[in-house]
Amino acid sequence: MSSLPLSTAQSQFQPRLAQRRFWGAVFMVICWLLSLVSLAVLVSLLVHVWNEGGSWLSLKLLTNYASVLNPREAGLKSALWGTIWLAVLTAIFSITIGIGAAVYLEEFAARNRFTRFIHLNIANLAGVPSIVYGILGLALFVRWCRYDESVLSGALTLTLLILPVIIIAAREALAAVPSSLRQAALALGATRWQTVWHHVLPAALPGIMTGIILAISRAIGETAPLIMVGAVGYIRSVPESLRSPFTALPIQIFDWTGRPQSEFHHLAAAGILVLLGVLLTMNALAAGIRAWQQRSKVQ
C-alpha cells in the first residue's frame, strides 16, 4: 500500500490505521466463528438424524398407516395427511383473518389510544407459549364449541397461535408500501377500498405471503397445542371431514420416540426427515416468492 502524501492539515490526525484494521479483522473472525457454530449444530443434527433414520426412508413410510406391533410395516400416512389438513385449514383461517385485521389496522383504523393498545397486545400475543394456546383451544373449541378432538379444533388452535405473527408480518408489509402509491390512487378519485385492493395489497402481497408461509411452517411443527386439543398418537385413518379425529407428523414422531423398541426410534428419525422435508419445501417456497418479488419490482 503506498501512503498518500501528507498535507499540513492532516498532521492533527492520528489515524492508527493498522490498529483499526486489526480490530476489524478480529471482529470479522469472531462473527465467522459464531455463524459456524449455528451451522455446525444444524449439520450435526441432520447427520445424526440421517444415520438413525435415513435407511428407514421409503415410499412405504408415506403410504402405510401406523402400527404398534410391526415397526417394519409402520408408516406416516395418517400423520402426513393430518398435517396437510391442518396446514390447509390453518392457512385458510389465518390468511383471511390475518390479512383482514392487518388491512384494517394499517389502512383504515384511526391512530388512537385504542388501536395502539391493540397493536401492543398483538405483539404480546406473538410471544405467548404455544401450550397456552393449546389450553385455550381445549377450552374454547373442544369443550365450548363442541368441535371435540377434531382436526377442526386443531386447525383453529394453530390459527390462534400464528395469527399474531401473520398480522404483524402483514402490517409491516403494508407499512412498507410507499405512501406515494396511495396518494396517486386517491388523487385519481379512488376510494380507500379501491386504493387498497388495486394497489396497496398487490404491492404488499409478496411480503405478506412470506410471513404467512413462515408462520404456517411454524404451525405444522407444533406439538404441544395439538396434544392439548387431543391429537392422538395412534390412529389408522386419514381425516375425512372437519370433525374427524387426527394426528400430525410431530405427534407421530413424539409417540414413536416414547416406545421401548429401538425400531420405533429409527422410524421417528425417518419421520423427522419427512417433517424437515415438508418444512424446507415451505421455506423454499417463501424464498422463491421473495425472489419473485424482487424481480417483479425491477421489471
Binding site: 406515494s180 388523487a187 378519485g189
Partner: peptide, 27 residues
C-alpha cells in the same frame, strides 16, 4: 372522492403505479 376526479393532482416525485403504461392511464 368525487372532488378529486375533477381536481386532479400531480406530485413532486413521479409516482406511476408499478403496472403497465396503459393501465396507469386507464385505471
Amino acid at each position: 372522492v368525487e372532488l378529486r376526479r375533477r381536481v386532479g393532482m400531480v406530485f413532486q416525485r413521479p409516482n406511476p403505479f408499478p403496472k403497465s403504461i396503459f393501465k396507469n392511464v386507464a385505471w
